[in-house]
């Protein structure tokens, strides 16, 4: 029983964590909280089903195509929902523009794909019906692989360092000749792919369903707040903790009450540590 709860909790938590990382990547590149993050997760599942089940592609080309599709949506997000409002960040217009674009993605998916949940293909075929079922461990593996990959990218590659540079101070980065706009677009493509990976790896659990985006947007934001904005490792720990806590609360208290419990704990944590459990307090110029 404990194994079943832990397996499901870690799996769901890993998906939330990856959506949190998606928020973080977009935020680092643009200082914008893009509410399309959850929709990237939804699209990962939908495009996976579309490519593998409907188009009949083998798993690896299907996966690659799904990731490319999500990355492209990430770029489109930057162009039409983020770039036009960058000059007025203090007015928080991005809330409206990214939410509006998220709604467009969701509605388009509902019309063109299906309004009913669709099955996601079985990817490997290991452990069906057991706590070691692939649907539980695939999201966890994807989550840790992503964090490892991002660390390598940011610490060991020139492009990664350039990402960090614009995240740190985009005016200075531009002054040094870095192509800020291109790097921002690349960041959004990366975020799209990471969000898509969340939906693809968690597809067997979440199914391919147009309404998953809103749920992922919501629960994916919690690890960001818990872990500290821009802190990927914090998002992973926050996401996994959220998933396990949520499943345990479902077992101990049941559905709707469990949701209340999750958010009660979330609010308490933010009251104690407003910058998140792993975030540094914001410095104030004096």
């Amino acid at each position: 029983m404990l194994a079943a709860i832990l397996a499901a909790g870690l799996a769901v938590g890993a998906v939330y964590a990856l959506i949190g990382v998606t928020y973080n990547i977009m935020f680092s590149a643009s200082r914008v909280m893009s509410f399309t993050s959850g929709q990237m997760g939804m699209l990962g599942g939908v495009l996976g089903t579309l490519c593998i089940s409907r188009l009949g592609l083998p798993i690896i080309p299907g996966f690659v195509l799904a990731m490319v599709g999500c990355a492209a949506i990430g770029v489109v997000t930057e162009v039409i929902a983020v770039r036009p409002v960058l000059k007025a960040l203090d007015q928080h217009l991005y809330v409206l523009s990214t939410l509006g674009f998220a709604l467009m993605i969701q509605t388009f998916t509902a019309i063109e794909f299906s309004t009913e949940p669709q099955p996601f293909p079985r990817l490997i075929g290991i452990g069906e019906g057991n706590p070691w079922d692939e649907k539980f461990w695939l999201p966890v593996v994807a989550c840790f692989a992503t964090i490892g990959g991002l660390e390598l990218l940011y610490r060991r590659t020139l492009v990664g360092r350039a990402f960090l540079a614009i995240a740190e101070d985009n005016f200075a980065a531009r002054a040094l000749g870095l192509p800020e706009r291109n790097l921002r677009m690349a960041s959004f493509a990366l975020a799209g792919a990471v969000g898509g990976l969340a939906g693809f790896a968690g597809g067997e659990l979440l199914l391919a369903f147009f309404a998953n985006g809103a749920t992922l947007n919501f629960f994916g934001f919690v690890p960001v707040a818990l872990g500290g904005l821009g802190n990927n490792k914090g998002a992973v720990i926050g996401g996994l903790a959220l998933g396990v806590f949520q499943q345990a609360a479902n077992f101990l208290m049941g559905g709707v009450v469990a949701s209340v419990a999750v958010f009660a704990v979330f609010i308490v944590v933010l009251l104690v540590a407003p910058q998140g459990l792993f975030g540094a307090p914001a410095a104030r110029r004096v």
Binding site: I5, A8, V12, L205, A211, Q247
Partner: peptide, 10 residues
């Protein structure tokens, strides 16, 4: 939208 209902069935 709950992805897994195993806890409820348990």
């Amino acid at each position: 939208a709950q992805p897994d209902v195993t806890p409820d069935l348990l």
